[in-house]
């Protein structure tokens, strides 16, 4: 199977994720869309690794996953705190630093 299709898929996933980030207001959904974009990137990296015949892309994919995991921990904690204080998870409502 032609690896370029994987790239198309990655592009599609990235676009869906980006559109989600820009359009949706719910912080959880935005967050999931960011994950989607990250994974689209991962897919692209792995595909490139396959196409070039070396492991660089796969190593980077691992890095991305580690960073994404860390990011999820911090990000979710922030979202939970925002929800507790503001009683909403909308990213547009949290436009000011102070309450």
């Amino acid at each position: 199977m032609n690896p370029v299709y994987y790239l198309y898929l990655a592009a599609l996933l990235f676009t869906i994720g980006a559109a989600g980030v820009l359009i949706r207001r719910n912080a959880i959904v935005v967050f999931m869309c960011i994950e989607l974009m990250l994974n689209a990137c991962n897919l692209a990296f792995v595909t490139f690794s396959r196409m070039h015949g070396n492991l660089d892309g796969q190593i980077i994919a691992f890095f991305t996953m580690v960073v994404a995991a860390a990011e999820v921990v911090v990000g979710l904690a922030i979202i939970v705190t925002i929800f507790r204080t503001r009683h909403t998870a909308s990213v547009d409502d949290a436009s000011l630093m102070k309450l």
Binding site: L22, R25, V30, V91, A94, S95, L96
Partner: peptide, 13 residues
Amino acid sequence: QSGFVRSYAVQML
């Protein structure tokens, strides 16, 4: 500097 996360996201994109 509007404070809206999504406008920052557009700018980054």
